[in-house]
């Protein structure tokens, strides 16, 4: 096991140490809450952040598996294209925005604007998700086990939003569709893979009303 103490280090020093340590072992990082952009743009590696993480954790992740044992700051897994980011606590504002691929899982709650402009990632929120979640989502899956805030999935264009709980209000260009056997099988796969206890049959499915809602 490799361990990096990020205390009093800047992003350059920590990420240099991290890249130098990615040789197959899991790298543990402690005292990293002040680092914004930790583990940016990695293509491989297993990283565990002990405690809280700062903003932009795992930004541009393209293959690494990053786990945070407590909470993540704003914009976790921003612009991810591959790999996995797991937050065992809560993630703040704007988690998993602009992602093209990969899996983002937060066991607790996710903040406002999480999943915005998702273009292909799988985003799983174990608790509640805030307002304006999945705004202008163009592809991928967002799965919420708890409740959602206002303007949920506003201007959804493509992809699927599954939610077990309630939403305060639904955004524009959304419609509710019956959940299919295919959806249930897909959700079961996710739940099995990530040890989530939930019954897919309880989920509601939200999809786009139109692929082209802005201009005729």
């Amino acid at each position: 096991m490799v361990s990096i103490n990020a205390k009093k280090k800047d992003i350059k020093a920590v990420n240099e140490a991290l890249k130098a340590s990615l040789n197959g072992d899991t790298v543990h990082i402690v005292n990293a809450k002040h680092i914004h952009g930790l583990a940016a743009g990695l293509k491989e590696g297993e990283i565990v952040v002990q405690g809280d993480a700062g903003d932009y954790l795992g930004v541009l992740n393209n293959g690494a598996t990053i786990r945070v044992t407590e909470n993540a700051g704003k914009y976790a897994a921003d612009n991810m294209t591959g790999g996995t980011v797991i937050i065992e606590g809560n993630s703040a504002y704007g988690a998993a925005q602009y992602c093209y691929g990969g899996v983002f899982i937060v066991n607790g709650d996710a903040g406002d604007f999480s999943g915005t402009m998702n273009k292909g990632a799988t985003v799983i929120v174990g608790g509640n998700i805030g307002d304006e979640a999945a705004t202008y989502m163009l592809n991928g899956d967002l799965i919420v086990l708890g409740d959602a805030g206002n303007n949920f999935a506003n201007y959804l264009i493509n992809g699927n939003v599954y939610i077990a709980g309630q939403w305060k209000s639904l955004g524009h260009n959304t419609t509710i569709e019956p959940i299919t056997d295919e959806d249930i099988a897909k959700l079961l796969d996710y739940f099995e893979a990530y040890g989530i206890e939930a019954d897919p049959a309880n989920f509601k499915k939200i999809v786009a009303a139109s692929e082209k809602p802005f201009y005729k």
Binding site: I11, H36, Y56, Y75, D78, N79, Y98, N139, N158, E211
Partner: peptide
């Protein structure tokens, strides 16, 4: 998806403060 309007947002959803912008340049 082919044929959809690509309307970029007017602002960064992942920047809320000047500090965020500095962090963006850093990363």
């Amino acid at each position: 998806p082919e044929g959809t309007d690509a309307l970029s947002p007017c602002r960064y959803y992942d920047v809320q403060t000047p500090e965020d912008m500095k962090h963006m340049v850093d990363f």
